[in-house]
């Protein structure tokens, strides 16, 4: 290759990839608002509080930031609002071991910041952060099992199927089944698997009854 050829390859190749990047960016920007709840005035004000105190100087959010303090993407799910508010205003008053200093965050600012964190906790992050494998297996992660989860366990579904790394590999993995299948498909499939998947080796679960299959379908749809 001549020098000129190499130069042209560099210039036009780079432009080519940048144009593709722009096109995908355009598509992405059109989809972002649908993957997150509406941004209210309070959420926006909370984001301003987030920037004012340079929270990202210690914490991460969506996994990006400073790795010095816990990730806050889903923090609002796991902690009661009243606790978070008191903690933000004076961390050491509710947790003597807290590393976070008292910044002088006001009650108003704390409310808005929590509204902002409630918003981030509802953004569709493609399943991040993943639920810890061992904590899920031990049943200590998150709230009480839903009706669908109980059926999933009592029927031994994990003998064949895997969710978040736990379970068998005989049947298809279900970690993201909720984003692949809709309600009707799932329900029909539980009633008679071979009707929707030719040669399916899975038995019918029609005998569990409509209510149970609805619960199980609800659970499947949460796996996104």
């Amino acid at each position: 290759m001549s020098n000129k050829g190499a130069r042209n390859l560099f210039i036009f190749g780079s432009l080519f990839f940048f144009v593709i990047f722009l096109a995908i960016t355009f598509d992405t920007l059109g989809k972002l608002d649908k993957r997150a709840p509406e941004i209210t005035k309070e959420v926006d004000e909370g984001k301003h509080v987030w920037h004012k105190y340079d929270c990202i100087g210690c914490h991460t959010i969506f996994g990006n930031g400073s790795y010095f303090a816990p990730d806050l993407t889903k923090m609002a799910i796991n902690r009661p609002r009243s606790y978070l508010k008191r903690f933000l205003m004076d961390p050491k008053s509710v947790n003597a071991n807290a590393a976070m200093p008292k910044f002088g965050i006001s009650a108003d600012e704390a409310d808005r910041l929590i509204a902002f964190l409630e918003w981030t906790s509802k953004v569709d992050t493609n399943g991040w952060p993943p639920k810890p494998i061992l904590a899920v297996a031990a049943g200590v992660s998150g709230p009480e099992l839903s009706a669908g989860q109980k059926i999933y366990r009592s029927q031994g579904c994990s003998g064949c199927h895997m969710i978040n790394g736990i379970g068998g590999t005989t049947g298809p993995e279900l970690t993201h089944v909720g984003s692949r299948r809709d309600r009707n498909w799932l329900h029909e499939h539980f009633e008679d698997p071979s009707k929707v998947v030719a040669n399916s080796a899975m038995p019918s679960f029609k005998h569990l009854g409509d209510q149970a299959l609805n619960d199980l379908t609800d659970y499947m749809l949460t796996l996104r």
Binding site: A6, L9, F10, S14
Partner: peptide, 28 residues
Amino acid sequence: KWMYIEVGLVLFTGILGTGHHYYWIGTP
């Protein structure tokens, strides 16, 4: 000549490589 090839490959891979930051931040 090699410089052009190197920086070319940097951009051919790196521009769309931005995608590795778009896994978990609420992007498709």
